[in-house]
């Protein structure tokens, strides 16, 4: 158990260090980037909970982020704003206005409930079928949010969400997510799930009901995604369904894959690395556009680089930077000298 505490401490320490440095520097841009990073952490850790333990890729994750974001928005936009932002809103929701913190938690819970209801049949599918069906789920969530104008303002931007996410809040939720992800990984459910990933028949003989285990992981993942979505909504204060679709899916997938899907450390490190790389590339893209080197706006450069980076990592180090062992374990193992093999 010691090594898990070590891992939790190191990863939380990393996040807390980030907060301290950024607050000390006091630069607004860094503040914004750090909040984004912490929110990404929550999302990527949620994805890690499902993908890392079950071995199944889920494309639907960002869809649940959207569910959380819209739920929290619906519950927290002040009544007068609602008249303008959501003209066709159902009367019973018109006057609801709770604190953003309640909204964020509610967002997580609603996302978890939707996941619970929709996903059970998917958990019995073969791996490849589950993955491509999750992709379908993402598209369906997108279609619903784009078309259910009464509560989402359709494809248009929804505005008026009260700002509430600052760096300390985002960081605190991120640290909590680290602890939840680690706890799940080492819990009975998590361990059985990882066993089933390697050998389904053997795990079943241990009493593991694999679809149920996967379902639990999926619901927990959706809870984290929903909370992340709520956090994000109260950070950015206006968004549209397009913010919860393929591009964002690609980015969080990249973060997890590069860091290592099987470990919480991988999720955290991957998020840090990709965020830093991304922001740097964005800055370069902006400079190129300003300098007017190309006749058109340079768009999509960042995604291309990320795509190439992902392919490179998968070729050279398919398990990611931290493929199997958490950082706590790695450090402990350094201390013990290995005996020579017989």
């Amino acid at each position: 158990m010691n090594r898990n505490l070590a891992t939790a401490a190191i990863l939380s320490g990393l996040i807390i260090a980030l907060v301290i440095v950024v607050e000390a520097l006091g630069v607004r841009v860094y503040d914004r980037i750090s909040i984004q990073l912490c929110i990404s952490l929550v999302l990527v850790l949620g994805l890690q909970v499902f993908m890392g333990n079950s071995g199944i890729l889920s494309f639907a994750h960002i869809g649940f982020m959207g569910v959380g974001a819209y739920t929290s928005a619906l519950l927290t936009i002040p009544a007068q704003m609602k008249g303008m932002a959501l003209p066709d809103l159902y009367p019973f929701l018109q006057d609801v206005a709770v604190s953003p913190y309640v909204g964020i938690i509610a967002g997580g819970l609603v996302a978890a409930v939707v996941a619970a209801v929709v996903s059970y049949p998917l958990m019995r599918l073969s791996d490849a079928a589950a993955v491509i069906t999750s992709f379908g789920l993402l598209v369906v969530l997108y279609t619903v949010t784009t078309n259910w104008s009464e509560i989402t303002n359709g494809p248009r931007t929804l505005f008026g969400i009260p700002p509430a996410t600052n760096l300390p809040l985002a960081a605190a939720v991120a640290v909590a997510a680290v602890i939840v992800a680690l706890a799940f990984r080492e819990s009975r459910v998590g361990v059985l799930l990882r066993a089933s990933r390697d050998d389904e028949v053997a795990a079943a003989s241990l009493g593991a009901h694999v679809p149920a285990l996967r379902w639990l992981a999926f619901v927990l993942a959706a809870l984290l995604a929903g909370i992340g979505g709520g956090l994000w909504g109260h950070f950015i204060t206006s968004f549209s369904p397009k913010a919860f679709y393929l591009k964002e899916t690609f980015v969080i997938l990249g973060m997890l894959v590069i860091g290592g899907p099987s470990t919480v450390t991988g999720a955290v490190v991957g998020t840090f690395l990709v965020t830093i790389a991304f922001e740097s590339l964005r800055a370069i893209e902006a400079r190129l556009n300003e300098a007017g080197l190309f006749s058109d706006q340079v768009v999509g450069l960042t995604e291309i680089v990320l795509a190439l980076a992902m392919i490179a990592v998968l070729v050279l180090r398919p398990g990611g930077l931290f493929p199997t062992r958490e950082i706590g374990t790695l450090i402990k193992q350094r201390r013990v000298k290995p005996k020579d093999p017989p």
């Binding site: 393929l246 690609f250 997938l253 995604e303 291309i304 795509a307 992902m310 392919i311 070729v315």
Partner: peptide
């Protein structure tokens, strides 16, 4: 993931 990445690459 590589085919997903390749898909994004082509689209972009």
């Amino acid at each position: 993931i590589t085919s997903f990445a390749f898909s994004t690459l082509l689209q972009n």
